[in-house]
Simulated assay, not measured.
Amino acid sequence: MQNAVGIDIGGSHITMAQVDPEKREIIHSTYIREHVDSFGTRETIFSDWVSAIEKAIFGLVKEDLLIGIAMPGPFDYKNGISLMQQGKFIDIYQINIKEELAERLSIASEQIHFVNDAAAFLEGEVFGGCAKDFNRVFGVTLGTGLGTTFYNGEASTDEDLWDSPFKDSICEDYLATRWFVNRYNEITGEEISGTKELLDKPTEIQAQIFQEYADSFAEFIVKYVNNYNPEVLVIGGNIAKTFPYFEQRFNENLAKNNINLPVKISAIFEDAAILGAASYALKRTLIN
């Protein structure tokens, strides 16, 4: 059996685990999560990554190892080259991460595959999550940012709709956590950090804000997502955990536009990108 490892690289952490290809699930006893200084030097970043990866692959036969890595963009996923010029990971800009990791881990570069982090989320849900029985799936991650991805029956692609025109700004300004923070402040003059904190506030304010969010989210589906003709919508990210608070209003808005789109909440949340990265690597190996 192929030794598959899925890795999710974020701005402050690297998380990973071995994946059982037959059971289509993470082997939780191998789960690793470690802090990474993404503003650090090239050597610091690679040392942190490699140290964590070596723990996850300990005891595995390296010749049979397959690594899938979910990475945020901009990134050259085919060649494994970082294209991030601002903020985090600046010191590895235009570095061939695939070759660097392969050399440090003493494996072939062909054993490493990169996939966009939003696409990895949906790959994971299709491979072993809530979307296993569907061929056309649209995935949205609602959290600090807005992630959008589409699975066409073969592979997931990053649709990159976060900065598409929406109302008087862009989609992400109305659908990410900062909208809740800003809207609550407009209404009350007080500060919250996100939806989790909103749930501790008065019911009337909760209801108003979640209804407004439902209106915006439905408008986004009508304007951008319905064109993909998906069989199901999969929602992940922290805001997805509050879906019951705006589900009814959201569905009513879709119905007004003659859209009957089943919604599934992520079955594996944070683990989806890890599972998806591994399944993507397995898929690429079969194709090649």
Rank of each mutant, 00 (worst) to 15 (best):
W179E: 06
L146H: 00
D160L: 09
P165H: 11
D168P: 14
G153D: 03
L161R: 03
D160V: 07
R178G: 01
L146A: 00
T149P: 07
D160H: 08
D163Q: 06
F150D: 01
F150W: 04
N152I: 05
F166G: 12
E154I: 13
I170C: 13
E159H: 03
W162D: 00
G147L: 04
G147I: 02
T149M: 09
S164T: 15
D158S: 09
T149C: 11
F150G: 01
I170K: 15
A155E: 13
K167E: 14
D168R: 15
E154S: 13
E172R: 04
G147Q: 02
S169L: 14
T148G: 05
L146G: 00
W179P: 06
T157F: 06
S164I: 12
L161Y: 03
C171D: 03
I170Q: 14
A176G: 04
D173A: 13
A155C: 11
L175S: 01
G153E: 04
D168G: 14
I170N: 14
S164W: 14
T149R: 07
C171H: 03
C171V: 08
T177W: 10
G153W: 03
W179K: 12
D158C: 10
L161W: 02
W179S: 08
T177K: 07
K167S: 10
C171T: 06
D160R: 13
W179F: 09
R178T: 05
D163A: 05
D168N: 15
D158P: 08
S169W: 11
D168S: 15
T177Y: 10
E159S: 05
N152K: 04
G147D: 01
S164A: 15
D160P: 02
T177M: 06
T157P: 04
Y151C: 12
F150V: 04
G147K: 02
P165S: 13
Y174V: 08
Y174E: 11
S164E: 15
Y151D: 03
D168Q: 15
D168V: 14
A155W: 09
D168F: 14
F150M: 02
S156Y: 11
A176F: 06
W162H: 01
D160F: 05
A176L: 05
S169A: 15
G147E: 01
W179I: 11
S169M: 12
P165V: 08
N152Q: 09
L146V: 00
T149E: 08
T157E: 07
A176W: 06
C171L: 06
A176C: 04
R178W: 05
E172Y: 01
C171K: 02
G147S: 04
F150H: 04
